[in-house]
C-alpha cells in the first residue's frame, strides 16, 4: 500500500493506493493518526486507488472517523471504487461517512 499526504487547504488529503486490509491497516491508521495529532483534523481519504477493503480496513476507517470528529474535524472519503463501495454499503458505513465522487468535491465540502 502506498500513502501520499497532500495539504489542500482547508483539508488534508491522504491518497491511498492498494488494499486496506489486515496487512496494511496499521500503517494507514498510524499515518492518519499523525495527521490528527498534528492538528490536521479535516481529513480526506482518496480511495480512488483502493480496490479492496476487509474488516481490518473498515475498523481503521472507523477509528479515524471517530478520532477526527472528536478533535472537531472529520474524515471524508473520495473516489470510492465500486468493489469498496459495496463493502462500505454492506457494512452500513455509507450511512455514517460522507462520500464524494472525487477529491475536489471532498475538499470543497469543508468550509474554507
Amino acid at each position: 500500500m502506498d500513502i501520499v499526504v497532500e495539504q489542500r487547504t482547508p483539508a488534508t488529503v491522504v491518497h491511498i493506493t492498494g488494499s486496506v486490509d489486515g496487512l496494511t491497516a496499521d500503517t494507514l491508521m498510524a499515518t492518519l493518526q499523525q495527521q490528527i495529532d498534528a492538528g490536521n483534523t479535516r481529513l480526506i481519504g482518496d480511495l480512488s486507488g483502493v480496490s479492496y477493503t476487509s474488516s481490518a480496513g473498515l475498523r481503521a476507517l472507523l477509528a479515524t472517523v471517530k478520532q477526527a470528529r472528536t478533535a472537531g474535524g472529520d474524515f471524508r472519503l473520495a473516489g470510492v471504487l465500486p468493489p469498496v463501495h459495496k463493502v462500505l454499503e454492506m457494512s452500513g458505513f455509507t450511512t455514517i461517512l460522507k462520500l464524494y465522487p472525487d477529491v475536489d468535491g471532498a475538499v470543497a465540502s469543508y468550509p474554507a
Binding site: S54, S55, A56, L58, V87, E89, S91
Partner: peptide, 18 residues
C-alpha cells in the same frame, strides 16, 4: 444483514474477508 455485518466487522479480533 447490513446491521449485523457492520457490528461483526468491528467486533472481530482478526479478519473477515468478504
Amino acid at each position: 444483514f447490513r446491521a449485523n455485518y457492520s457490528f461483526h466487522n468491528l467486533a472481530h479480533h482478526a479478519e473477515i474477508i468478504p
